[in-house]
């Protein structure tokens, strides 16, 4: 178990996972509670054309991804709020556009030379110090944002129609949440790529949510599970010579399936999970 971590590339990969895991707990909890999973996935996918053009244009990939992902989030907000398009339809529309534009740019049209595989599925074994620094900065940003806004995120998610009557700065808090999620997603691109960000930010939190009875339980549990699944996936990839991003995603999916099955078998039917089903 220890032997693979003698290599610097494995140490870097493990360190990257250790930086992303707290983000998976802190932001993953908000993502599953606030139903932002599809949004998170689509910000990741939207960053793909940014990664493709970064090389030829000579801009840092993280910056390009952040620009395109941020632009995507802003456009999504406008489309769903102003144009009256349902949020999930708008997300799907922009998601398809982003992937298609990325593929066209990556083809001979732009001669970018970027590796589509790496952009889509990550390259955890090629993590360098600049990537680690960006992830550390993303973690710091998320921790600061949570310090100020975590209470408001929860109160707004719990009862959005009353947020204003409670005197909460819900709009500001929501904007900050979306921005730190976008930054965290970009930080995770080197590890898991545009298409697998959910493996970090959605799958562990969704798994722990089956059992968590409080927000701290959900946050700590999701962070811990992300760490275990990340390191486990890394070792699996090392042993099998498989892409690590995909290995983490497969491991996460398997753990979720097992957890959901265990919950269904050990516990009686859950209390009503929808607001409509109140008594």
């Amino acid at each position: 178990m220890i032997e693979p971590f003698q290599f610097p590339f494995m140490q870097h990969a493990a360190l990257e996972i250790a930086l992303l895991a707290p983000l998976a707990g802190l932001l993953g909890a908000q993502i599953v509670l606030r139903r932002l999973a599809f949004f998170t996935h689509s910000v990741g996918a939207a960053s793909f054309p940014g990664l493709v053009i970064a090389g030829p244009l000579g801009i840092p990939p993280a910056l390009a991804a952040l620009g395109v992902g941020g632009g995507f989030a802003a456009l999504l907000e406008r489309l769903s709020k102003r144009a009256g398009v349902a949020a999930d339809a708008a997300t799907a529309l922009l998601l398809v556009l982003a992937l298609a534009i990325g593929i066209v740019l990556a083809s001979d049209v732009f001669e970018s030379g970027a590796s589509v595989d790496q952009a889509l599925f990550g390259s955890l074994l090629g993590i360098g110090t600049s990537e680690l620094r960006f992830s550390a900065a993303a973690l710091a940003a998320a921790l600061v944002a949570a310090l100020f806004f975590r209470d408001t995120w929860i109160a707004t998610g719990f009862d959005a129609p009353s947020a204003r009557a409670l005197g909460l700065r819900a709009a500001t808090a929501d904007l900050v949440l979306v921005v730190v999620i976008a930054i965290a997603v970009v930080a995770s691109l080197d590890a898991v790529g545009s298409l697998l960000v959910s493996a970090i930010f959605v799958v562990p939190a969704a798994t722990v949510r089956l059992f968590a009875r409080s927000l701290p339980q959900l946050e700590l549990g999701a962070a811990g599970l992300a760490l275990v699944e990340g390191i486990g996936g890394l070792l699996l990839a090392y042993e099998l010579d498989a892409p690590p991003g995909a290995a983490i995603a497969v491991l996460g999916g398997a753990v979720f399936a097992a957890a959901a099955l265990a919950r269904a078998l050990t516990l009686p039917a859950r209390e009503p999970a929808t607001p409509e089903a109140a008594g």
């Binding site: 408001t152 929860i154 719990f158 009862d159 607001p275």
Partner: peptide, 19 residues
């Protein structure tokens, strides 16, 4: 109107009034 599936206790909800 409130989300019944949120992992918040009665005390957590009452505290939301103080935020």
């Amino acid at each position: 109107r409130a989300r019944l599936d949120f992992p918040v206790s009665a005390l957590d909800v009452a505290r939301m009034g103080t935020y």
